[in-house]
Design a protein around this nucleic acid. Structure first.
Lengths: 128, 128
DNA sequence: ACCCGATGCCTTGCGTGACAAGGTATCGGG
DNA sequence: CCCGATACCTTGTCACGCAAGGCATCGGGT
C-alpha cells in the first residue's frame, strides 16, 4: 500500500512538475515555430511532439485554446485553406506584433534561464 | 489614454508572462537554496528577491503555502527557534527525500532548457 | 461491407501554482 | 506615538494545461 502510493505519487508527481515547469513555455514554442513559416494546428501538435524528445509536447486541449488566444491578441492570423482537399486546414501566420511579442518572450525566457543558472551555480554565496 | 492602456496592458502582460514562465521554478529555487543551508521563511523571501535581478522574486502568498506543501510531502522539515528573541523563526531544513526530489527537479529543468534551446536554435529544420 | 485509426478541428470542467489582500504580533526609530 | 520592518499565516481569484468528450473525413485492413 505504502509502496503503491509512493510509486503512484512519484509518477504523478513527475508528470505534474514537468507540466508546471513547462508552463508558459508553450506560447514561446508555438510562436517560435510559427516565426519560421506558417503551420496549421494539427501540424504544430506533431512538430512540438517530436521536438526535444517530447519535452515540449502539447495536447490538443492546450494548443487550440492557445492559438485562439494568440489570434485574439493579434499575434497570429488564421486562414482556412482547402488545397483541393475535403477537410480544410486552418493555417496560422505570425504577425509583426507577434514577432515583437516573441522577442519579448525570448528575452524573458533567457533572463529566467540565466537567473536559474546563476542560482544553481553560485549556491551558498548569496547572503541574507 | 490609448498610451496608458497600451502601456498598462504591456506591463500587465509582461508581469503575467513572467509569472507563467517562472511557474514551477519556485520549488526548484527554494529547494536549491535550502540545499546549501537551513533558512527561515522571511529569509528565503529576501534571498530569492535579490537573486537574478529579481527575476526569481517570490511573494509571501506563494512562499508560505509552498513551504507547507514541501513539509507535508517530507521534502523539508521545520523547526521553531527563538534564539533568545521574542519573535521566533521557523527554520526549514532539506531532508534526504528533498535532495532526491531536488535532483529530479534539476534534471527536468535541464531537459526543458535543452529542449527550448534546441528548438530556438534549429528553428526551421524540424519537418512535419 | 465494415470498422478503426489517423487526420483535423473544437469545447467543458477540473487541478494547480502564483498572487493580491487581508490578518496577527513584536520591535526600533523618528 | 505611530509607522515601517520583521515574521508568520490564510482566503479568494486568475490563468494555464489537460483529460475527456464531440464532430467529420479518409484510408487501409479483414
Amino acid at each position: 500500500m505504502a509502496e503503491d502510493t509512493e510509486e503512484a505519487q512519484g509518477s504523478a508527481t513527475i508528470a505534474r512538475l514537468r507540466r508546471e515547469l513547462a508552463r508558459g513555455t508553450t506560447e514561446l514554442a508555438v510562436l517560435s515555430v510559427l516565426s519560421v513559416r506558417r503551420r496549421y494546428g494539427y501540424e504544430l501538435l506533431k512538430v512540438l511532439g517530436q521536438a526535444g524528445e517530447g519535452v515540449l509536447e502539447v495536447k490538443e486541449g492546450t494548443l487550440y485554446p492557445l492559438l485562439h488566444r494568440l489570434e485574439d491578441s493579434g499575434h497570429i492570423v488564421a486562414t482556412w485553406e482547402a488545397e483541393g482537399r475535403a477537410r480544410p486546414r486552418k493555417y496560422y501566420v505570425i504577425t509583426p506584433d507577434g514577432r515583437a511579442y516573441l522577442a519579448m518572450l525570448r528575452t524573458e525566457w533567457g533572463g529566467l534561464v540565466d537567473a536559474m543558472r546563476q542560482l544553481l551555480d553560485t549556491l551558498g554565496e548569496v547572503q541574507p
